[in-house]
């Protein structure tokens, strides 16, 4: 699969063609914007977090029977997906009142709603992405009634899957928005799922862990994104790597010699030699086993072992 020309560039992603018909590459940018592009900034590492999080969340949804455009992660900050004919409607699902909904209903921020609520917004920067009723949508001809029904029911199903998913990771999914598109007559979930398009609060401290940190200048944006990803990846691809560092052959090992002497004096005459080294256990997340081995070897060469005097061996347990 080869990356081809740029098809379009949005506020947070660039879309590229590939040499595979119907498949595109989504490149997630570190650039952030809010309030319909009126506020702009950079969140270092955001592209990486959003690509990985979308990969994990979409795979989770696919596993539970939701059809999405997602195919796979192709680099740190790029995913491969089916090209969709996008429906210009954003579908929001809300579990708590926050942002514009709190204002509209006159609820205090963070009021839990009686039941999850679905809203449609017009994806149109010029108009400021306004809230739409079904009648508006019919009038504008943006989608058919059956499509709207499908979008709403899929969105609620996504909520049923993701609310407990995040809860298990110490995060409250307050709300999120989805975008859908058509491919070969079928509706697929498109776009991304990341802290850019949802509200996540820490279940214990209620700390804001999403783009609201950027919107409201709360600071620690980069850290919050990284923390969300860390919690999601923990169970996703965690593996344990064991590193054994031992004195190189021929290098004198004073501690080993001392232990050898002590063993001999205790009558363990069968002991011919003792080498004393280090045993290091690493928890590694978010990489394939092969890549993890490669990375840990690099860690050994650069820091964990001194190649002048030490050898090392790496074992991986998935």
């Amino acid at each position: 699969m080869e990356k081809k020309e740029l098809i379009s560039e949005g506020k947070s992603k660039r879309i590229y063609a590939t040499d595979q018909p119907g498949q595109i590459i989504l490149e997630f940018k570190d650039e952030a914007s809010a309030f319909d592009g009126k506020k702009k900034g950079i969140i270092p590492g955001k592209g990486r977090v959003n690509a990985r999080m979308s990969d994990i969340v979409f795979r989770q949804l696919e596993k539970r029977g939701i059809r999405t455009h997602h195919l796979r992660l192709v680099s740190e900050s790029e995913t491969l997906a089916w090209r969709l004919d996008m429906i210009p409607i954003e579908v929001a699902v809300r579990n708590y009142a926050a942002g514009s909904l709190a204002e509209r209903l006159g609820y205090p921020e963070r009021t839990e709603l009686k039941s999850p609520l679905v809203e449609f917004y017009y994806k149109n920067d010029r108009l400021g992405d306004p809230l739409l009723t079904r009648e508006h949508i019919r009038e504008l001809g943006l989608a058919k009634d059956e499509q709207l029904d499908e979008m709403a029911s899929t969105a609620l199903r996504v909520n049923e899957i993701l609310r407990p998913f995040f809860e298990a990771r110490g995060l409250i999914l307050a709300d999120f928005k989805l975008e859908f598109g058509m491919r070969e007559g079928k509706m697929l979930l498109g776009d991304e799922f990341s802290p850019d398009v949802c509200r996540l609060w820490d279940a214990e401290t209620l700390e804001i862990m999403d783009k609201d940190r950027f919107r409201r200048d709360l600071g620690g944006v980069e850290e919050a994104y990284a923390e969300v990803l860390r919690r999601i990846m923990e169970e996703e691809t965690g593996m344990t790597v064991y590193v054994y560092v031992t004195p190189k052959k021929g290098v004198l090992d004073p501690a080993g010699q001392a232990a050898l002497g002590a063993l001999k004096s205790l009558g363990f005459d069968e002991v011919g030699d003792v080498r004393i080294g280090k045993y290091i256990v690493l928890k590694v997340q978010g990489v394939e086993a092969e890549r993890a081995t490669e990375r840990v070897r690099e860690m050994c060469e650069r820091l964990l072992a001194n190649p002048v005097i030490e050898d090392f061996r790496v074992e991986i347990q998935e």
Binding site: V251, P254, A255, N306
Partner: peptide, 17 residues
Amino acid sequence: LLEAGLLPGAMLRNTCL
């Protein structure tokens, strides 16, 4: 300086431990 590679070699524990 040894660890940084600005000088060659490495240090082991004293033989007397």
